[in-house]
Design a protein around this nucleic acid. Structure first.
Lengths: 151, 151
DNA sequence: TATGAAAGTTTTAAATA
DNA sequence: TATTTAAAACTTTCATA
């Protein structure tokens, strides 16, 4: 699917504030309701626009600890990897997980209530799948946290 | 502000799909329109519910490279830190930035079109503020990427 | 907490450039 | 082919019971 300048403007508006009405978005991008509506529909169908969600205040809700977890493994077999990915996807405290190039194999972002909850997560994970080396980096301050792509 | 079980159910629904109507949310949490509406309004006022946004398909939009950047610095002065944080907040390719406890001082998540764009970002950053040591971890595969807190 | 009515929004369809 | 107009269906918002 081809995305033009108007589509990109619409996406920028939606990223900034998805609660805007079609009229507001249309005005912001210099178009009108129906064409904007059709473009949004097409981009949803194409999977370019995914979930509409809200960003919550993690601290206020008691999620006071955020860890970045660097994982090295000696296992590189297909079966091990399948089980490992399944474990990550199923654990709701894992907000992000990436397989990396190079020395470190995986990085996770884990949000939990406190350090004890992190330890519980860690123990559960290593009992499910064998990992070689784990380093946890504790966040002291969230300087920035956005999902908006720099369109 | 105190959050009860019904509030938490509402937040779970909004995280899952913020485009739902009040009626749908009310049904899902076992309540009705008006109370749900009042609870959402209060949580927005209290800042517990923040931006409403959409998650976009980064790959489809040409953002094919994602790096986690580990930064060590020798500078710990207030002025240096202020300039560094400002630089991070202003750069749209920095999606996340955390100050860490321990050996590594900062971690960034940076989304760019390609490796060349990452290098341009890196050169611009180090020309703005002095950093001691930088390690970039390149993501090969996004296994999971959610903003939903495990409520 | 529930009801309901006014205001506003989305969605579809027909008309027009 | 894309945009504007128009109108029906639905949703939000808020006053009142």
């Amino acid at each position: 699917m081809k995305i033009d300048a108007t589509d990109r403007k619409i996406l920028r508006e939606l990223q900034r504030d998805a609660s805007q009405s079609l009229d507001e978005i249309a005005k912001a991008v210099g178009s009108s309701k129906t064409p904007v509506w059709n473009r949004i529909r097409k981009m949803k169908e194409a999977g370019i626009i995914g979930t509409q969600t809200v960003l919550l205040d993690a601290e206020a809700l008691g999620f006071e600890a955020c860890f970045f977890v660097l994982i090295r493994t000696s296992e590189h077999e297909a079966d091990w990897q399948r089980r490992f990915l399944k474990a990550l996807r199923e654990r709701p405290e894992v907000l992000e997980a990436h397989r990396l190039a190079g020395d470190i194999d995986y990085i996770l972002k884990v949000r939990v209530k406190n350090a004890r909850a992190y330890d519980a997560f860690y123990q559960a994970l290593i009992s499910e799948v064998k990992v070689h080396n784990v380093t946890a980096l504790l966040s002291m301050e969230e300087i920035k946290n956005t999902v908006a792509l720099p369109l």
